[in-house]
């Protein structure tokens, strides 16, 4: 069972497997570069717990937990450097 992006622990890196759905949220995530095969690193949550911050394609992106849940990531998680 693949994990979703909101479960990626702080500071860790995973590979994106897929973005679920074909609505506006999914399209926006794809447009921002969350395509399958890309590496993504979690940078933690906002002080109130939502949204979350990630690093992907060399820039920083903020996603709500609800949106991050749309992104499937690999089980294989390695320590980010």
């Amino acid at each position: 069972m693949p994990q979703t992006l909101d479960q990626l622990p702080d500071g860790q890196v995973a590979t994106i497997l897929d973005v679920q759905g074909d609505d506006a949220v999914a399209v926006r995530l794809l447009e921002m570069g969350l395509t399958d095969g890309e590496l993504i690193r979690s940078l933690g949550a906002a002080p109130l717990g939502d949204p979350l911050e990630f690093e992907v394609r060399g820039y920083r992106l903020s996603l709500r937990i609800l949106e991050a849940r749309r992104v499937l990531i690999s089980d294989l998680i390695r320590r980010g450097g």
Binding site: A24, V25, P51, Y59, R60, R64, E67
Partner: peptide, 12 residues
Amino acid sequence: GETPPFVMELPA
């Protein structure tokens, strides 16, 4: 309607 995405770049 659907909740609009709040996907935002955090610039340096």
